[in-house]
Computed example of a mutant assay.
Amino acid sequence: MTGREFTAFALAGEIDLNRLAGQLGIHRRYRWEEPLLLNPDTLTPITAEQGQGRQVYLYYFGGVVFIDCPDQVMADFAHRMGNTVEAFKTFSAGRYRETYSLRVEARREPVVANNYAIVPVYAPIFSDLIAFVIAKSVALERIEENVDTVLDEVEGLIALLDKGKVGIPDRRLAKLASTILNFKYRSISHVMILDKPDITWEDPASERLYLTMANQFELSQRYQEIKHKSDTLLDITEVFSSLSHARRAARLEWIIIILIFIEIVIYVFDIVRKGG
């Protein structure tokens, strides 16, 4: 083997791997962090050790990584998956895409760069680790774009507030808060940014490759940026919520004052009428 080519995509939603496995006739259960590895031509399960042909990794958080697959094979696979997996129905080969190369060159020192890695001897675990890292990277890219979209929306709300307009519906505020919390949940729990593969605890070479690649793709830094932006958005949402509650309380106070005034007017009217 002289090398392998990786192409990763981030889908719009999650993939229920156990449900998909059942539909494909695969009789086993997949753990939370375990990918489903398929032959993209036959849709049959394989392992990283089985041959060096085309492979596709499917991760529950919506990451899809093709190995040695031309564009047509990837498009055909996505089309076939669209019949059983909802997230594949909006598959786009142009967005949230990451490519990476693994080269095998004897008598060379290991090298890990931004878009390729060089190893003197190939081991199947290298494919697992590279696929896992770039799947995380494209998943983070989708989250980052969504966070920036919400930031733009909040910027518009701040502009309204600057003009003295604070009439933001509670339902919209609740939806914003839910979206922001979902960013934090997906980046920590779904994409597993803070988790390392089990093999890295046992194999120093695998750990070095994984940590070096994670550093190259700035996974930790990007997660911290998402966390910081999410915390800022939650703080802003809390301010809007406080203003909304204050506005509602003031409205209720005025309603009570008006009702008391009406009651006084009615009472005075009754006194005048009886006196007359």
Rank of each mutant, 00 (worst) to 15 (best):
R107Q: 14
A117N: 08
F77A: 03
Y60K: 15
V119D: 05
F77S: 11
L102Y: 02
E109L: 15
F61N: 10
V56I: 01
V104H: 11
V73R: 12
F132C: 04
V119C: 05
M74Y: 02
V119S: 04
L102C: 09
V56N: 03
E105M: 05
A117V: 04
V73Q: 10
I118F: 08
V104F: 12
N115S: 12
N83Q: 13
V64L: 00
F66A: 09
I118K: 02
A75I: 11
I67D: 09
Y122E: 01
A78I: 06
N115Y: 02
I67F: 04
A106T: 12
V104D: 02
A75K: 15
D76W: 11
V56P: 05
L129C: 10
V119L: 09
Y116C: 04
D128R: 00
E86T: 06
S127E: 13
P120G: 11
F77L: 09
A117M: 03
F61E: 03
K89A: 01
A131G: 04
P124E: 03
D76S: 15
V65W: 07
G94C: 11
E105W: 03
V133P: 05
D68Y: 13
T84A: 08
S92D: 12
F126P: 09
N114M: 12
V133M: 08
S101Y: 11
Y96D: 07
G62K: 06
A106P: 13
V111D: 12
M81D: 05
N83M: 12
F66I: 01
V73F: 02
T90A: 01
Y59C: 10
G94L: 15
H79N: 11
F77P: 07
V73A: 14
G63L: 05
G94W: 14
I130P: 07
Y100A: 05
E109F: 12
P70M: 11
N83D: 14
D71M: 01
A93Q: 15
T99R: 14
I118A: 06
R108Q: 15
T90K: 10
C69L: 07
F132P: 04
I134H: 07
R103C: 10
N83P: 04
V56F: 08
A117S: 14
N114H: 13
Y60V: 13
T84Q: 11
N115M: 03
R97W: 07
D128V: 02
H79S: 11
Q55A: 15
V64F: 01
R103F: 15
N115A: 00
I67Y: 01
R80C: 02
P70V: 12
E105N: 04
E98M: 08
D71G: 10
P70S: 12
E86F: 08
P120F: 06
A123D: 00
M81E: 01
T90M: 05
D128S: 07
F77T: 13
I130L: 03
V65F: 04
Q55G: 08
Y116A: 01
F61A: 09
D128W: 05
V121I: 11
P124A: 00
T99A: 03
P120Q: 05
A78W: 07
A117Y: 06
P120A: 11
Y60T: 15
C69H: 00
F132M: 10
V85A: 11
F132G: 08
T84P: 05
E98W: 06
Y100T: 00
V73Y: 00
A123I: 01
V112E: 06
V133N: 02
Y60D: 14
Y57T: 08
T90E: 06
V119N: 01
A87T: 03
A131R: 07
